[in-house]
């Protein structure tokens, strides 16, 4: 007998409406929770909002079983739900000012290593990117999606997706240029 970890995403989704629904959901959660979490955190920027969106994503995902008998791309579907929720949340909080990372700007906090500082810089720099660039960049770099998959999730052409990712990388590099210069010199 196969264990649930050997089931495909599609098969597991199909089990949602059966008595194995809880276990199947647990398995898919184990597979994709960190993917969705990374997306929410880096696209939303704000931890609390990201957590709200993360929770709502999985709630809606589970509830979707009653509307869809099967899904071909579970990961893409999860990211689409997450993206829509992030978009709504952003729109709702449009007037909020950007909150800077206190750790980065608090000299009293310890910084174990340069790499940790680099990570902090990357996080803050991401928030300075325009939303469309950031989203494409996160899907590409954090989720490892292909350009075709990015195009599907965002709803654009593949060349547009490529351009957005390229520009996001360049923009990030510009923001981090002083730090990168220092690092590459060292």
């Amino acid at each position: 007998m196969r264990t649930l970890s050997e089931y495909t995403d599609v098969e597991l989704f199909g089990l949602f409406t059966t008595d194995q629904g809880e276990a199947a959901f647990g398995e898919l959660y184990a597979r994709y929770s960190s993917v969705v979490y990374a997306y929410c955190m880096r696209v939303m920027g704000d931890r609390e909002q990201a957590h709200d969106v993360f929770q709502d994503t999985f709630m809606k995902f589970y509830q979707a079983a009653s509307r869809h008998e099967q899904l071909e791309n579970v990961k893409g579907y999860l990211l689409t739900i997450s993206r829509n929720l992030c978009f709504n949340e952003k729109k709702r909080n449009n007037n909020r000012t950007l909150e800077f990372d206190e750790l980065l700007y608090n000299p009293g906090e310890s910084r174990d290593a340069d790499q940790n500082e680099m990570l902090q810089l990357v996080r803050v720099s991401l928030e300075l990117l325009p939303q469309d660039m950031r989203e494409a960049f996160v899907l590409r770099e954090y989720q490892g999606l292909s350009y075709t998959e990015i195009a599907k999730v965002i709803g654009m052409t593949v060349p547009t997706a490529k351009v957005r990712v390229f520009r996001a990388r360049q923009k990030l590099k510009e923001i981090l240029q002083p730090y990168l210069d220092e690092q590459t010199r060292g």
Binding site: S33, Q55, R123
Partner: peptide, 29 residues
């Protein structure tokens, strides 16, 4: 620099794991 940026992103990605409390909250809900 492009490589350094990618490495930093990969390391950042590895740290992004949903906290146990958040996971519990999802399942409890």
């Amino acid at each position: 620099q492009q490589l350094a940026l990618r490495l930093a992103v990969q390391e950042d990605r590895a740290l992004l794991v949903p906290p146990a409390a958040l996971t519990n909250s999802v399942f409890t809900n």
